[in-house]
Design a protein around this nucleic acid. Sequence first.
DNA 1: GTTAGCACTCCCAGTTACCGAGTGCTAATT
DNA 2: AATTAGCACTCGGTAACTGGGAGTGCTAAC
Lengths: 344, 344
Amino acid sequence: MLLTDRQLLILQVIVDDFIRSAQPVGSRSLSKKEEISFSSATIRNEMADLEELGFIEKTHTSSGRVPSEKGYRYYVDHLLSPQVLNQQDITIIQSIFAEKIFEFEKIIQRSAKILSDLTNYTSIVLGPAVSINKLKKIQIIPLNKETAVAIFVTDTGHVENRTFTLPASVDASDLEKTVNILNNRLAGVPLDDLNDKIYKEVAMLLRQHIHNYDLMLHTIADSLKMPATEKLFFGGKTNMLSQPEFHDITKIRSLLTMIDQEEWIYNLIRTESAGIHIKIGRENNNSIMDNCSLITATYSAGVENLGTIAILGPTRMEYSRVISLLQFFSKDLTAVLTKLYQTN
Amino acid sequence: MLLTDRQLLILQVIVDDFIRSAQPVGSRSLSKKEEISFSSATIRNEMADLEELGFIEKTHTSSGRVPSEKGYRYYVDHLLSPQVLNQQDITIIQSIFAEKIFEFEKIIQRSAKILSDLTNYTSIVLGPAVSINKLKKIQIIPLNKETAVAIFVTDTGHVENRTFTLPASVDASDLEKTVNILNNRLAGVPLDDLNDKIYKEVAMLLRQHIHNYDLMLHTIADSLKMPATEKLFFGGKTNMLSQPEFHDITKIRSLLTMIDQEEWIYNLIRTESAGIHIKIGRENNNSIMDNCSLITATYSAGVENLGTIAILGPTRMEYSRVISLLQFFSKDLTAVLTKLYQTN
DNA sequence: GTTAGCACTCCCAGTTACCGAGTGCTAATT
DNA sequence: AATTAGCACTCGGTAACTGGGAGTGCTAAC
C-alpha cells in the first residue's frame, strides 16, 4: 500500500491547499500549481486511487477532493514540512517571558491568550497539579470568634486558603500550639499526603497538647481537601466562530458549550506522556469534536512534568504552524519555569 | 399623548406575545386572544396609532408589529405585571444558600451559574471591591534566599497574595521585625489606603529598626498594588446562541467577543445606585448591545453596597420573570452576606 | 504511461410563480 | 361616532425551474 512519490506530492498539495482555502480541491486547479508538472487527467487518475485508499474524499459526486481523517493523519505523520517560525511570532512569545513574573497563574493565563492570538484557534492550558507541591507553611488566622482562615503556602509559592468554623472550645493559645505542631510536622510534605499524615502523626501530638483535640483535627483535615483537578485556562474561546466549518449555529453551540464543561476538556487534554500529541477528528472520541483537531504539548520545570498546553482547531488546522508554535512555546515555558523553581 | 386603555391593552399583549414567540404579531392573531374582545379591523386602527406614536414597528410593509425600544420601555415602566416566582425557582435559588459556604467567590460563582440556568440568558456578577475591606493580617513567608510570598488577609476572610524578590540585604530577623511593624500599624486599614499609610507612618518606623529600609519599603508597597477592578463572574455565556435574534454568526460573534472583554462589561454593569436597573437596547450606549437588554440588581452586606448581579438577554427578554428573579435573588444574597459578615 | 476530449453530475445563483399572513382603506353596520 | 366586514394590495418565503460552472470518470489517441 505504499504510495508513489507522485501520490504523496498530490496528497500534500491537496491538504495544503484545503487548509488554506477551506474549498474542495479540483484536478484543474492542482495542475496549475508550479510544483505540479503533469496534466489534470493524470491527477484525476491519481486522485481516484488516493480516494480508493481512503486518503481523500469527495463532498459530492462531481466535487473536488477534501482530505479525510486518514489523509490528515498521513499528512501529519509523513508529509509535514517543519515550518520555521517567523521572527515576529518568536518576539511575541518571548515577550511573555521577558517580564519577571512570579505568579504562575498569570504566566499561564497570558500564555493562553497569546497562543490563541497567534493561531486564531482556541488555546487551552492545563495548570500544574497543586497537590504535588510540598507544604512550606501553614498559617491560621482567626477572623472572629467563630471563623478563621487557614492558609497553605507551597514551596512553589502557591497559596491556598480555606475559611472554616472554629470549634467553640478552641482558644487563641490552642490555635497557636496547633499551628506550631502542624508546621513542625508537615513542612515539606506534598499536599496530597497531608491528610494521611495528619491522622497518622499529628493526631497524637495534638492529643497531648490540646483537649478536645479531635474536633480541631477534623476541622483542619476537612479544610485540607484540595481541588481534585488542575486548573484550566483558556484563550480565544470565540475564535472558532470565524472558522467556516462552524458557520452552523448548532455545531458551534455544542462546541462552545463543551468548552465550558471543564471536566470534558480535562479528560480531553490530559496527556499521558511528554511531547507533542496530535488528535484528529474522531480520534478524540467525542462526536462534538468530529470536525476538530487537538494538538497538545507538555511543559515542565526541571524533570518534573507540570502541565499541558493545547490548541483546539478545525481538522483543517494549520498543523505545521501550530506544532512549531507549541514546540517553541513549551520549550520556552519549561526553561522559564525551571529557572524559577530550581532556586528553591 | 396619553394612551387609551385599549391601546395599553394592545401594546401589552403585543409585547407579551412577541416575547414568547419572537414572531411579529398580526391583528388577526391578536383578535383571537381571549383578553381581546374587538375585531381585527379595530386592532389594525389602534396599531396604526401605536405605530405613529413610536411604540411598535413593522419589519416590512405588510408584516405584523414588533415592539420598538420605546414600546419595551413603556411596557417595563407601566405595564409589567409583577410575576410571582414559582416554588421551583425559589427552591433552586435557596439551595445555593442552604449549604454553609464561607468562600465568597464560590457563592458568587454558583449564583451566576444558577441565574443563567434559570433564565436561559447570560448572567454576570460583579464581585465586591476587595479594596474597601480592612486588613486583618499580613504575613510574609520566605520561599528561598531570593523570593518570598506576602499574604494579606482581610476582615472578610479574603486572601490576597503576592510573590516578590527579597532585597539581598534583608535577613530573617529583619523580615520578622518588618512584619510585626506592618501588622501593628496597618491592621484595620482599608486595603485602598495601605500604600499611603505605609509611606506616611510605617516608613519612619522601619528606618529605626532596619538598615536599608527603603528597598524593603518599596518592595512591599509595590506588592500592595491591588487589582483596580472588581472581579467578574459569568454564567451561561453561550445561552445567547439559542436566541433566535442571534442566529446570525457575525452578531453572536461580536457579542461573545465583547463578553470576553472584561473592561467593557465592567463599564456596562457598574451601577450608580442600589436597586433594579433596566437598560433596553441602545440605552446601553453600545452598538453591539443594540438588540440586548441588561437588567442589574445590587446586593449588599448590612448597609454596605457590595456588588451587582446582572442578566444580559435580547431586548425581547422576559422582563417580568427576570426582574422577579433578580429581586428575590439579591434579597436572599444580601441576607446571607449580612449574616456572614456581621459576626466580624 | 500520459493526456486530450467529451459526456455527465451536481452545486449554486438567479428567475419565476404562488401562497399565506398581514396591512390600509372604504363602505356598511351598530 | 365608533366598530366591523370586505377587499385590493404588499411582501416574505418556499418550491420549481433554469443555465452556467467546476468538477468527475471514461475512452481513445498520443
